[in-house]
């Protein structure tokens, strides 16, 4: 039964123009679609193919390509499969259409993406600030925002002077390699 539905879905999607479909596993389907065709596709998925659950909308900032990638993860309780619909929009001006009229949960994800990436969703019910209420800097999840640099500008490292350190310094030792010089948990490290 499930397999029949899966085949049916594959066939349905295959008939549509301008989309590329790749089945990555039995329950996962990756669909790429042009941004202007996406709402119609979601409409189709929800209305005709039982994908009633919008699991999430993810946004990826492909800064080098000058694009935002929006990924709509839709789940069907009937076919028990997940379709991830990928689309790309230009990073500037970063405006897209809301799918709130198709999926209610989109309101949260669109608000979140607007706040974190600065994408404006036309028709979304509420794009007001949510998590970053008092933030007036650039949308922080954008790749060109360096959160660590911001933190270093605004906060001080704890300055420790324990006795053992004073003692070592008196004997000619002391801090040789501060953590910032060596650690790998920072993107800039091995670019140097």
């Amino acid at each position: 039964m499930t397999n029949d539905l899966t085949t049916w879905l594959d066939n349905l999607l295959a008939e549509l123009d301008g989309i590329s479909v790749r089945r990555t596993s039995r329950r996962r389907l990756r669909v790429e679609v042009a941004s202007d065709a996406l709402p119609a596709l979601l409409e189709l998925l929800r209305g005709r193919a039982s994908f009633v659950h919008l699991s999430a909308i993810s946004c990826v900032d492909w800064i080098d390509a000058g694009q935002f990638e929006l990924v709509y993860h839709c789940w069907s309780y009937e076919t028990q499969s997940l379709v991830s619909v990928h689309t790309r929009i230009p990073r500037e001006p970063g405006v897209y259409i809301s799918v709130y009229d198709i999926y209610t949960p989109a309101a949260f994800f669109e608000r979140d993406i607007h706040e974190m990436f600065g994408v404006w969703f036309e028709g979304s019910p509420d794009l007001s600030k949510f998590i970053l209420t008092e933030w007036d800097g650039p949308p922080p999840m954008r790749k060109d925002f360096d959160s660590e640099a911001w933190v270093n500008q605004h906060f001080d490292w704890q300055d420790y002077h324990p006795d053992w350190l004073k003692d070592l310094e008196a004997r000619g030792g002391g801090i040789a390699v501060p953590p910032d010089e060596q650690r790998f948990s920072r993107r800039t490290v091995d670019e140097t």
Partner: peptide, 14 residues
């Protein structure tokens, strides 16, 4: 929300 925002998704990219 926002009282517990630690920016984990951003941190993880680094």
């Amino acid at each position: 929300a926002g009282y517990l925002h630690r920016g984990f998704e951003k941190l993880m990219e680094g």
